Computed example of a mutant assay.
Amino acid sequence: MIPVAFDYSRPAGVDEAVQTLTDAGEDAKVLAGGQSLIPMLRLRFAAPSMLVDLGSIGEMHGVREDGDDLVIGAMTTHDEVLKNPLIRAHAPLIAQATATVADRQVRHLGTFGGSLAHADPAGDMPSVATALDATFEIAGPSGRRSVAASEFFVDYLTSALEPDEVLVSVRVPKLAGWGTHYEKFNRVAQAWALVGVAAAVRRNNGTIEEARVALTNMASKPVRAHGVEEALAGAPATAESLAAACDHAAEGTEPTSDASASADYRTHLATVLTRRALESAAGI
């Protein structure tokens, strides 16, 4: 199909982008990598009066260190994220998950920030950002504000971003001494995850000091598996401890039933995949 007619703007800076969105009103849409928006335009599931293309805003590209954090520009492509040495060294969970995103063509066009702002619970990046306690820098008419990942994802395809706001960058704490792994299950290669698990584990002398686990596609937004995290805190780093903790994986989740999988099957997958992710992250 052919999209409805729309105006197009390619601002040179964040302030200009915010002003353009403000002037255009709620019918405007931000264009990042376009890997989710373009199909919606073609099917007329989205019919914006204005597209605001963020591709020329230099501030929103690249990865840099800032003390104990990494700052990832929202317009940094998945391919750039995957190959970035800072991310591989200090936030390997992001690289591990990014390697599973769709295919090479999508990773060369799709953006880190775009996948987060889209807030699809079946997407890989929202659960990773949640597990890493990332912070989102957002620019709007009133200036800039920071929003924690736990508050950024609100509901299905709904984030804390207002229509006249732009996600500028994502701040991720460096995880020195942690083991990480991203595990997901999908029906066919390059498909959305039926369920995914982002796991990070910090060990010390045979004991798990801390674990972080976030689930993909087990609710209308990313879910932290707090029951698993609490069960592992101070537990011996053994396969038996992990297996017992993973019995709590689906607590607090609201999996859906659809043409791809039933809610019961997703609940089973959450337990199995959480154990696999934790075993890899903990080196067990």
Score class of each variant (00 low, 15 high):
21 L>T: 04
152 F>P: 09
57 I>L: 12
39 P>F: 09
165 E>I: 10
3 P>T: 05
164 D>G: 08
282 A>K: 11
102 A>Y: 07
205 N>L: 09
111 T>C: 01
260 S>A: 09
163 P>E: 07
6 F>R: 07
133 D>H: 14
223 V>I: 07
33 G>L: 08
111 T>H: 01
103 D>W: 15
145 R>N: 03
127 S>C: 07
153 F>A: 02
169 S>P: 03
159 S>L: 02
46 A>F: 08
17 A>I: 03
106 V>I: 12
27 D>A: 13
77 T>M: 00
14 V>S: 11
22 T>Q: 12
85 P>W: 08
89 A>R: 15
247 D>L: 14
81 V>L: 06
165 E>H: 14
117 A>M: 08
245 A>K: 15
1 M>V: 00
88 R>N: 11
78 H>W: 11
217 N>K: 11
108 H>G: 04
32 A>H: 04
238 T>N: 13
65 E>Y: 08
203 R>G: 01
239 A>D: 04
62 G>K: 06
66 D>A: 12
191 A>T: 06
56 S>Q: 15
39 P>I: 01
218 M>H: 14
253 T>L: 14
138 I>F: 12
265 Y>I: 02
136 F>P: 01
148 A>C: 00
33 G>S: 06
168 V>Q: 07
23 D>W: 12
79 D>N: 14
249 A>T: 03
178 W>L: 02
5 A>P: 02
98 T>A: 11
23 D>I: 11
85 P>H: 11
89 A>F: 09
41 L>K: 13
67 G>D: 01
138 I>E: 14
195 V>Y: 11
182 Y>T: 01
69 D>A: 07
132 L>G: 04
21 L>A: 06
116 L>V: 01
57 I>R: 15
146 S>K: 13
112 F>V: 00
24 A>Y: 09
211 A>P: 02
74 A>T: 08
111 T>Y: 01
15 D>A: 15
227 G>F: 05
263 A>F: 13
233 A>L: 00
79 D>E: 06
251 E>W: 07
189 A>F: 06
138 I>K: 14
48 P>G: 07
241 S>P: 01
137 E>P: 04
118 H>P: 00
65 E>C: 09
23 D>P: 12
12 A>L: 15
181 H>L: 04
182 Y>L: 02
136 F>Y: 10
32 A>R: 02
63 V>D: 00
5 A>T: 05
189 A>S: 14
174 K>A: 09
29 K>S: 10
237 A>T: 01
190 Q>W: 13
267 T>K: 14
107 R>W: 00
107 R>K: 08
97 A>F: 10
44 R>I: 02
205 N>M: 13
263 A>V: 02
35 Q>E: 03
231 A>E: 02
259 A>Y: 10
66 D>R: 14
176 A>C: 04
38 I>Y: 11
233 A>T: 03
264 D>L: 11
198 A>L: 06
178 W>I: 00
266 R>W: 03
150 S>P: 05
208 I>M: 09
172 V>S: 09
267 T>M: 06
126 P>C: 06
137 E>C: 04
145 R>A: 07
145 R>V: 00
76 T>L: 05
130 T>N: 08
3 P>D: 03
219 A>D: 05
283 G>A: 11
92 P>C: 01
97 A>H: 14
151 E>C: 02
144 R>E: 04
245 A>L: 05
91 A>V: 03
88 R>F: 11
278 L>N: 11
39 P>H: 12
24 A>M: 14
5 A>H: 13
249 A>Y: 08
92 P>M: 01
204 N>E: 15
